[in-house]
Write a protein that binds this DNA or RNA. Structure first.
Lengths: 213, 213
DNA sequence: AAGTCACATTGACCAGTGGTCGAAAAAATG
DNA sequence: CATTTTTTCGACCACTGGTCAATGTGACTT
């Protein structure tokens, strides 16, 4: 708990190393060396190597997700606009921190699977209650018609997270957009909205323009 | 390549060990010992510990998936019936081999993430072309209306695989069924089919009854 | 100023890892 | 039988994640 500085220095060190190496090839000694401290000190702040990774992921996505959460709870904004913010949050939070490394690793990128699984779990569980609320409010306001708001939220988030993470089913950007196009189309028909009306979910919300829809 | 017997003995050994231990805690020496061979021989048949796991997963799901593939290409059967077979294949292939271990592991089950990620990737990529074809034929026959058959196939498979695997978002059986109910409802509306008409996708297809729908 | 004491830091150390390798055994070939 | 090729093996290697007794540090008391 104490000396938050050194705590963060460790996370910074791991983050820096993750930019060029895979988790499995990064040793605790290496992290300690990069952080400029003794190896033993690592275990004063973290119980295991895994715990460092967990803490890093949490620290890394906390800001993005919290601002997303706050923005989406503004009830005066249209549910679809807030839904666009969720889309955007998934899109941007997926790769901004951990470099893709995909150019260097032709070998199956499975090695980082712990990291990606943690990311998927964290993102979906954090955003699910938010998106569920948004959908429910959309239903109350008559803009969305669907009988299973919670399930719909989870389905959308699963698809978004898996596709944006892009390690389980590596795809080109075009392929990703094609799937999203299908998802949006499915959403339109599923929520009784006219074809094309939700297309703005794809373009990415600019966070400061005028409200759409 | 040669001596397929010993090759399979190694896979059997790993499979047996996986029933009680997590991948990370299983050593190559242990696999060798269980298989009744020397450790060095392992590396005569496999290039790495990871390669053993990959081979095991492939061997394990090949039968299930191949029979599923064959069944689903029977064009004389209704697309929805064949879709039910896909649902069933995902459902049954998820846990039948690798024991759940969930009762023993209160600690976050992240450790097996390599295994589960491989499973997800394998299942989805294998079944996607099959399901895409089924949907396309359904569209041609006028039973399905949707503009993005390939995307729809991938979306459905992603949700099915993630939910049945149940490690990324651990849920109770009831919760899983709730999500599937939502997915089916979304499918009904998305493909212009009446509410409830696809509910039989949930019940599990019995593989020898009379055709439904 | 000295003494106290909880907190913080360290690297040698440990059991065990995945993977290598030369030698030996077994099989195949002539 | 000899010779070559394919299999098998376990000692060995560099290194891993994690432990721990020893040591340092600085705030507080007297």
């Amino acid at each position: 708990m104490p000396n938050i500085t050194k705590y963060n220095a460790i996370l910074d060190a791991l983050l820096k190393l993750l930019e060029t190496k895979k988790i499995q090839t990064i040793s605790v000694s290496e992290i300690a060396q990069t952080a400029g401290i003794g190896k033993g000190s690592i275990y004063y702040y973290f119980s295991s190597k895994n715990a460092i990774l967990e803490a890093l992921i949490e620290r890394n996505y906390q800001n993005t997700l919290e601002t997303a959460k706050k923005l989406t709870t503004q009830e005066n904004v249209s549910p679809f606009t807030r839904m666009a913010m969720i889309f955007q949050a998934c899109r941007s939070s997926s790769l901004d921190a951990f470099a893709d490394k995909s150019d260097l690793t032709q070998t199956s990128a499975y090695e980082d699977s712990v990291l990606h699984q943690k990311y998927l779990t964290y993102l979906i569980t954090e955003l699910k209650p938010v998106l569920t609320t948004i959908i429910q409010q959309g239903i109350e306001q008559g803009q969305i018609h669907f009988d299973y708001p919670e399930a719909l939220a989870e389905i959308v988030l699963i698809v978004l997270a898996v596709k944006f993470d892009n390690t389980i089913l590596p795809s080109s950007p075009d392929e990703i957009e094609a799937i999203l196009q299908g998802l949006v189309s499915l959403l339109e028909k599923g929520t009784d909205n006219p074809k094309g009306s939700l297309n703005f979910l794809l373009t990415g919300y600019d966070w400061n323009g005028t409200d759409s829809q």
